[in-house]
Write a protein that binds this DNA or RNA. Structure first.
Lengths: 210, 210
DNA sequence: ACCTGAACACCGTTCAAGT
DNA sequence: ACCTGAACACCGTTCAAGT
């Protein structure tokens, strides 16, 4: 996880007792992640967090100043495990793998993608990943502005897909056939990702490059 | 739910007094849309809706059985004005224009895109638009499964972009330079849309077509 | 320093009751 | 038929108070 001592998203707490405090923040985030994994970010509650920690209802407010900050901590922690391939790899492989990794991390924590798409906050890991993303696109041959714009589109698709996948499935108790053995379902996320990558290649060919 | 005879999204109300009732539903939705346009769907509240109608807090529950249904009514109403180009037009133009229309309708009602992306419900206008979307892709040459998958990606991008655009802009009071006169900002939504369309063309060329 | 409890202003929803 | 008011179980947040 991130060494980043508190890099922006972290709660502002008065004291400076490093030891106990840092441990506490890790515990807070861990408890929050457990809750989100189990019940989704929609059901992450300041009171529920306190309960998960075995404390009484208002205890969360001692450790975390607001729910906004809690969300940032959670979002950043989820993104912390996203792997970015070595920058010697070809750009397309880099993009592909980093999005597949991001998708699989986000899928473990329902509702977090929705937070990331709808809030403005910039946590350390968001910055890390979006800068890696832009870097890969610059590698591919786009200029700074183009890379920003394309990266935005990829990011929106990623988060959007996860929100889409996280929709309540109505009350259909249908088992949803597992599909024949060999035939990989070619999952929908990757289909869309491939569409974006195909578009990227096409733009690369179409536009004049230096 | 109940005997959904009126197209799925509409509220189930006991009486059958057509006249007064239908008018009332139009008024309900109109009031809800006014609220959403002003304050966003996040701030659409059952009590607030009643207030907007000049009634006391709990009056909404007489006209609309739940907030879920209210959201469906609102979402469907917003999509009702999305224009779909004539089916004689080439597929790319059709897609482009229908997404630009959808985007501009959704932009007027903050938070509605988020509802559409995160809920399962199928209202009449959602069905209409997604079937037009699939039809355009079949026109382009994709089979049914491909059209479904690609349409999904386009839709996710549309809603995702609107959620992204609707993010609170922090408290930066910076005027955000208007840009030089002639230079159209080539808005970000369309850049992404063009990326998807480029990808679609590329897939069309790459894959074997009959 | 670390936590508790009561309180405030909100939610969605239910329900008995008014006219 | 159409609406009101009180009530319940939740929220986020503040704050005085305990240890």
């Amino acid at each position: 996880m991130s060494d980043v001592s508190d890099g922006g998203a972290a709660a502002a707490r008065p004291g400076r007792s490093r030891r106990r405090t840092d441990l506490s923040e890790r515990e807070i985030v861990a408890a929050a992640l457990r809750l989100v994994a189990r019940e989704g970010a929609d059901n992450l509650t300041m009171r529920g967090l306190a309960a998960e920690l075995g404390l009484s209802s208002m205890a969360s407010y001692y450790h975390v100043p607001s729910k906004t900050v809690l969300f940032d901590l959670v979002a950043d922690a989820v993104l912390a495990d996203v792997r970015v391939p070595d920058s010697e790899e070809p750009w397309e492989k880099r993009l592909r793998e980093m999005f597949i990794s991001a998708r699989s991390e986000l899928a473990r924590y329902p509702g977090v993608a929705a937070l990331l798409l709808s809030r403005t906050s910039e946590t350390p890991n968001m910055r890390r990943l979006s800068s890696e993303l832009r870097r890969a696109l610059r590698q591919a041959g786009f200029d700074r502005a183009e890379s920003d714009a394309l990266g935005e589109a990829f990011t929106i698709y990623l988060f959007g897909r996860l929100i889409f996948e996280g929709r309540a499935v109505a009350e259909s108790a249908a088992p949803a056939e597992p599909g024949p053995a060999g035939a990989r379902p070619a999952d929908a996320f990757e289909t869309g990702l491939d569409l974006l990558l195909a578009g990227t290649r096409e733009l690369l060919r179409t536009t004049s490059r230096d």
